[in-house]
Design a protein around this nucleic acid. Sequence first.
RNA 1: GCGCCCGUAGCUCAAUGGAUAGAGCAGCGGACUUCGGAUCCGCAGGUUGGGGGUUCGAAUCCCUCCGGGCGCGCCA
Length: 594
Amino acid sequence: MLGLPGHPVSLRKIAPPRAWGYTTTLPQELAGLMLAEEQARLEAEMGKKAAKKKLRARMSELSVQVAKNLAEAVSLGALPGVAQAQAEGGYLNFYLDTAVASRDIISAVLERGSDFGRGKPQNERVMVEFSQPNTHKDFHVGHLRNVVLGNALANLFEFGGFEVLRANYYGDHGIHVAKALWGRLNPEVLARAEEMLGGPPPQGVYARVERVLTAENDNPKFGEIRATVEKETGRILQQLDDPASEVYELWRQTRQRDLETFRAIYDELGVRFDLEFYESEVEKRASGIVDELLEAGVAAVEAEGEYAGTVVVDFAAHGTPELGKMVLRRSDGTTLYQAKELALAKAKFEDYEVDRSLYVVGSEQSLYFKQVFEILRLWGYTAAEKCRHVSYELVQLPGGKMSSREGTVVPYTAFVAEAKEQALSLAHERGISAVPEEVAGKVAFGAIKYAFLRVDTSKTIIFDWKQALSFDGNAGPYIQYAFARGNKLLAGFTPDVPHLLKSQYTPEPAEVELCRIIADFTDCVSQAMQTLAPNIVANYMYDLTRAFTEFYQSCPVLKAEDGVRFFRQSLVAGFSTVLTAGAGLLGMELPDEM
RNA sequence: GCGCCCGUAGCUCAAUGGAUAGAGCAGCGGACUUCGGAUCCGCAGGUUGGGGGUUCGAAUCCCUCCGGGCGCGCCA
C-alpha cells in the first residue's frame, strides 16, 4: 500500500500500554537498508563496532524522518476504522477510532455470546491423553498439574474447532501393583521390616514397601526380608494374570477401589474422559505388536552384546542414531512398557481414527516419546507426524523432588481440604459467615487451577503451601471476584446490539482499554492452542480482569445517566461473556457471588 | 561423558525479534460518606546468570562459559 515493491510490510498491534491500533517498524527497516552501503564502507575502514557506533545516531534520525514522510503520505480514507496515522520515533502508528472500535467489539461479543473467539470447525479429530495415574499409588499434587493442564488443552482444541477425544490410560498393572499387593498380604512382615528401619513410614502401602526395598540397612535379618519381598512380588506379578488365583481377586478389588477414587477426583475437578484405557488390557496386545514390528523390519532380534536375545529397535539402523536403542521384548519373552504404548497408539490410529494425538506427560519422558513417535513413523503411520509429547516440568518441593518413599509428597486430598478451609476462613474474615459450601469449593478450586495453569509448562513449580493458598492479587479468586461484582451490575439488563451501535458515547480511557483487551481474546486462544500453552489464557484472564477492576473503580455504571449506563452495562456484559469463556477453557468456575 | 529444559526485581511469575522489560507477594505510604476493600492508587525495587556474535533492533535467535533440574534401564 505504500508502494514499496519487494519489501514486505508487517503490521502488529501497538504495544499494550500505549494505544489501540497497529504499528509497523518499516521506517527502521528502511533506514537500515538506506545506510547499508555506507555502513559497509565504514566497517572496512574502522571495524564493525566503531562503524555501528558512528552510524547509530544517523540511523535513528533517518528512521524518524522516514516515519514522518510515510505518515504524511498515508491517505486515511483507504484505511477503515483508522482515525489517524502518526509517526512516533521510528514507528509508524495507525490509531483506531476508539469509540467505533469499542462499540464494534462489544457488539461482536454480545452477538456471538459464548461462541465469541471459537474457531471454525476443523474437521479433524485430536486425542488428548492425560492424567494416566497408577492405581495402588497415591494421587498427589504432581498429578494435579497434569490433569489441570491436559483438561485445559483439550478445552482449547475443542474451542479451536477440533473434535476432541479425552483419553485416560490407567496404570493398573505391573510391578508397582505387585509391591502394593504384597504389602497388603503381609502386613506383619512389612511392620517388622519397618521397625528395623526406624523412622515414620510414608503414607500408602506402595510407598511403604518401596521404602523397604530401597532403604539402606546392613542388618542381615532385614536383608532376608528384602530378599523375600523381591521373590514374592515376582510371584504376585505372575499371578495377576491368573483369574483363578487369590491374588487376582485382591487385585480386582483394590484396583476398583482406586479407580473409583480417581473418578471422584475428576468429578470434583470437573474433568471428564471420553475414553479410558487400562494397561492390563493393552498389555494383552503388546506381544503381537512386537511381532508386527519384527515383520515390518522396524525391530530386530539382537544377536549379541548386552541386549542379546531381546527384540530392539536400533535407531542407528534407521538414520536417527541420536535416539539410541529401544528394547521392546526381553530375552525371556516378556514385553516392556513401550510395547504397550505402541499397541495403544495403534488402537488410537485405527480404532479411533485420530488425526492428531497429544500425550500430556512429564518432561522426563521426552527422549522416550521421541523414540516412540519415530517407531510409529517407521511403522508407516503418517499421523505419527502429528503426535506431540506435551511436556511439562514437575511439581517439586522447596527441599527437592517429591518422594513418596521419603513421605514428602503432598497428597491431593490434604491439599484440596486445606484450600477449601482457607476459602471459608477468608470469607469469615470478610464478615460473611454463611458462605455456601459450593462457593467455597469453587473459590478453592479456582485458586488451585489458576495457580497451576498460569505458569509456563517448561517451568518447574516449586510447591509452597503459603503461596499455593494465596487468594490475593494475581490469583484465581481475583478473577472470580471481579466476575461476581460484574454480575451485580447486570441485574435487569438486556443487551441490544442495534441500539449499542447507534450509541454516540465516547468511552473513557479505562473503558477503551477494557475493550482493547476483549478484542484480543481471539488471538489469545488461538495462540494458546497452537503453542500448547494454556498459561497464555491464564495470563490473559488476569489482564482482562485487571482492566475490568480499573474500569469498575473509575466508571460508575448503575449511577450513570441512561445512555452511559447502557453502554457500560453492555461493556460489562461483554466482559462477563469473555471471562466466562476463558474460565471455561481453564476449567475454572465463576461463582455468581462470593 | 552425551542430550533436553530452566536461569528476568528480595520471592513467585509475565513479556508473536520491536518502543521506557511488566504484574502479584513481601516492604513503605495512601483511597472518594457514590454500583462489594478477596478491591484500587502511589513509592521503592532490574547490567534479563557472565562473555561474545547475528540484526535497523535481542530477555527472546546462534556460540561459549557458569549455576540448577531431568534423561540416557532386559523399570514403568
